[in-house]
Each structure stands twice: as C-alpha cells, then as structure tokens.
C-alpha cells in the first residue's frame, strides 16, 4: 500500500490514563497535498500532530515520513527530516527579537559546534530573513522583543519561522485563532501560496477559513477518521452532522 505517500500513519493508537485520544487511526497524505483536518474538541487533532512531531509516542502503530519510520525519533530529529509545526497557542521565543526568531528558524546546520563556530549570519541569510519578515508583515518590528507582539502577530511570526525552515511537510495548528477577519484571509492566502511547493496539514475550526483553503478535508472523531472528502461532501455526511449537531448548526 505505502507507495509514494509523503506521510502515512497506520493503526496508530495512543491513550492517556485509559482514555484513547487516538484510536486505530490510519491516515495517508500525498506529496504536495494540502489537507485540512477538522473535528470537534477532543477529537484528537492536536494529539495526532504531537505523534507526528515526536512530542508523544504512539502505544501501537507506525508513522512513516517518506517511507522512514519516525515514531522512535526525537523531536529535533523529526524536525530535521523536514517536518515543521506551528503550535495551537503561538509559541515564539519571547525574549528574543523578531529578527532572531526568524534567524533561529532559518534552515541550516543545527549542531552545537556549527552554531558555535560557524554561527555568523551571511548576507544572503539576512536578505532572506527580511524577505520573510516582509511576507509576514513584521519587517517594521524586526528589532522588537517577540514577547511584546500582539497575539495575531505572534501567530504570523511563528508561520514566518516555518517559512524560514522551508520544511517539506508543514503542520499548522489553528492558524486563524485570535486573528481579525482581514488577517485570517491573508493567512489563508499565504497558506495557499505555499501549497504545491510544500505538503501541508492545517487544523482549523473556522469554517470560513476551511472553505477558503478549499482542500480535501479529514474529519476526526474520538481519535479516528470519521470521513474524508471535499468540504461539501463532508458537510452533507449524516454522521458528521450528528457529531457536530448542536455545536455548529450553521455548517
């Protein structure tokens, strides 16, 4: 089965103190695909990303990235294979400048000795950083502490760090949270512009945003895949409606 999927998860289960957050989940992603994962609270969306990025390890099942098992690797090893993640709550280096945040995200060697001895920033790198800062609209704040940014700006900064990393697989957890409508649209455009060059998984609650992305949608429920398909197919699925009923009638 696993032909040239960039990411595949098979029979993955993860339980916390008896509660099965992920239950026999199987999931396949083609190279270059943009996929949106939706699902009610507690469906296991973030836990799934945790499992991919090595934050937690599955009890059983295997996850492969480009045919290589990654369940036994540590967080930074997985990152270096080319998987980047934006967290649900923006997590940036609050006591570093915006510029330094992007610098630390920049692709390149990450060993102790290389940062110690060859840590100088080249002119190309500097240009690259300013390009990214322009893209995420933070060029004017380059020398400010990241901790002083507004919530939405932090979200963008984190996306900027992802851009700097230039990973093959991007995992983006609720990018639109805390953004104004205008910013949300801009974020959507940014993600769409990345699609194709990168493989992307987006987790989102905001249905307007999901519609904007217009991608294949996977619905998670109680730790396993409930339905996959286009947004319209999913919206009209009986089981999906049942799961969401009372919570998101307007879907």
């Amino acid at each position: 089965m696993p032909k040239d999927f960039i990411l595949s998860a098979e029979g993955v289960t993860k339980s916390f103190d008896g509660f099965k957050a992920i239950d026999d989940l199987s999931f396949y992603l083609d190279e270059g695909e943009l996929r949106t994962i939706i699902g009610p609270n507690g469906a296991g969306k973030s836990t799934f990303l945790d499992l991919i990025t090595g934050k937690t390890r599955p009890d059983i099942g295997k996850i492969e990235f480009k045919g290589t098992p990654i369940t036994k690797r540590s967080e930074y090893q997985i990152y270096r294979m080319g998987i980047g993640r934006k967290f649900q709550t923006p997590s940036v280096f609050a006591n570093h400048t915006v510029y330094d945040n992007i610098l630390l995200g920049l692709e390149g060697r990450r060993g102790v000795w290389s940062t110690l001895l060859f840590g100088r920033t080249s002119t190309e790198q500097r240009d690259r950083i300013y390009d990214i800062l322009k893209t995420i609209n933070l060029a004017h704040k380059a020398n400010e502490q990241a901790g002083t940014l507004a919530y939405g700006q932090k979200q963008w900064l984190e996306i900027g760090m992802l851009l700097a990393q230039n990973p093959q697989l991007l995992l983006i957890d609720e990018p639109a949270a805390g953004m104004t409508d205008e910013e949300t649209v801009k974020t959507g455009e940014l993600i769409l512009s990345l699609a194709g060059k990168h493989t992307i998984i987006v987790i989102e609650h905001d249905m307007v945003f999901v519609r904007q992305l217009n991608s294949k949608v996977t619905v998670l429920h109680q730790g396993h895949v409930l339905r996959e398909g286009t947004l319209d197919e999913v919206r009209n699925d009986e089981r999906v409606i049942e799961v969401y009923l009372g919570r998101k009638k307007n879907v």
């Binding site: 540590s74 930074y76 997590s91 280096f93 006591n95 570093h96 995200g105 110690l116 100088r120």
Partner: peptide
C-alpha cells in the same frame, strides 16, 4: 559564547525548551 548564535539558542532553551526542540535544535546537546 553568549553573543554567538549558540548563545541565542542557549537563551532560547532557557525560555522555551520545547520550542527549541521543535525548531530542530538538539536542546540536550
């Protein structure tokens, strides 16, 4: 040491070790 890129990562470890790990740096090293 603390002014180099190493130093930046060092302080990043102090502030948010998990974020450092998820930025591909082997924080333990």
């Amino acid at each position: 040491l603390t002014q180099s890129k190493f130093g930046k990562i060092q302080r990043a470890v102090r502030d948010s070790e998990n974020r450092v790990l998820f930025s591909g740096y082997a924080a333990p090293n």
